[in-house]
Design a binder for these strands. Structure first.
Lengths: 220, 220
DNA sequence: GCTCCGTATTTTGGATCCAATATTGAAAAT
DNA sequence: ATTTTCAATATTGGATCCAAAATACGGAGC
């Protein structure tokens, strides 16, 4: 990994702040429902409120925060119904993405997917929760990108972002990590055989496990 | 319609600018691919660049403009493939919305839909293109909102926004206006009978007509 | 005690100004 | 003539300051 590739502060303050805000929200440091005080955060991140507000506008578009004129931004609360809705929409969009991807999958694509899966297995073996979440995402997004529908892929990414906060909880459990590895293998197998139906089914099961596992956390 | 509901300048400059920008882009005054010069637009709209940039961030989230750090915003170009992709995603999401809506539809909902359809017919009879586009949107969104899935409805709205520019072209044709009226009647009928399948089919036809009609415009 | 109202404070919205970066154009070197 | 370099210009990014709105607070009235 090149030296300045890691932890290089992005070229614009708003990109830096955007990344920091995402972390703060998804790690729960900014609690759901809590108002976002611009002055305090701007000072914490050592920037003015202007780039902070632009970053918040981006997050608003992604649904991570809500906005009311003259009242400001608030961390979006994710109710159980919201979680179910997000996963239902994901199911619809991801099924489409997978079917298209299967129809276009090249050997090179399969190679990339296998490499992504290796990384998942490595992270699972090391019990590295963060790496696991990252590698899992790479695996899925690699597949979705193969569909050749950039807008669709972008929408799916946004939906993933919405529930990122809860994904790390999921991977905190060793049993879940183990299961994910197996389910990925099954998916990869279906993809290699070019069976869209099986891939879709496998991924649906995969997703349903996740949502079932997460539901208990939502009864705050 | 209440007096101050029409043409009241929104309470914040960014909301005002956002609406103006949408119009400028969707009417084609800002050409696809063209860079967005903040100084010029800010002066035209009589605001500073700060609210303008926040509005642009919103549009970026919606995919109407793209952004490159230090180079600025550009009006997104919609290729034929993009158009097809947007409509395909709409089909997926709207089918889900309609099915859920049918399962929950109340008499009051049907009344609202009928009222929306009256407005569509009135606009069509008056050959009012703009009113037609507005009323059509109200009709569909009323239905989608009945699904009780707010995020889904929001995503569908965003997708509609993406192609708003072309919708007014579509309604410029009298034959299209006439057809839309009929297709809406069929949809409303299916909804009254509680037939989700028929409603979905009708709307799919409706949508496919629109995309087929629009394709010629995309060969710029 | 409770509500209502008006003021003080906090917080957001926006304008202006300056800095950083990108683009343009012209002169110099090959 | 073509390419390169470098300065001039245009454009975006961000900080600071002020205005506008919402919220919090405290007292008067009931």
């Amino acid at each position: 990994m090149s030296p300045d590739e890691a932890r290089r502060r992005p070229p614009t303050a708003q990109q830096f702040v955007l990344a920091e805000l995402r972390r703060a929200i998804t790690t729960g440091r900014l609690r759901p429902g809590a108002p976002i005080r611009q002055d305090a955060l701007a000072e914490e991140f050592q920037v003015s409120r202007v780039p902070l507000r632009e970053a918040l506008k981006t997050l608003q578009g992604e649904g991570l925060v809500t906005y009311e004129a003259h009242r400001g931004y608030f961390v979006e609360t994710l109710s159980l119904d919201d979680l179910r809705e997000v996963y239902r929409i994901r199911q619809l969009l991801e099924e489409e993405a997978v079917r298209r991807a299967v129809a276009r999958l090249t050997e090179a694509d399969l190679g990339r997917l296998a490499a992504a899966q290796d990384e998942v297995e490595r992270a699972a073996a090391a019990d590295d929760v963060l790496a696991m979440a990252t590698a899992n995402r790479v695996f899925h997004m690699t597949l979705f990108d193969c569909a050749g529908m950039p807008r669709l892929a972008r929408m799916i990414r946004t939906l993933w972002d919405t529930t990122d906060a809860y994904r790390s909880m999921y991977y905190g459990d060793a049993g879940n990590r183990e299961r994910v590895v197996k389910e990925h293998r099954a998916t990869l197998d279906a993809l290699r055989r070019g069976s869209a139906d099986e891939a879709v089914t496998t991924l649906n099961v995969h997703r349903d496990h996740a949502v079932a596992e997460l539901e208990p956390y939502l009864n705050v």
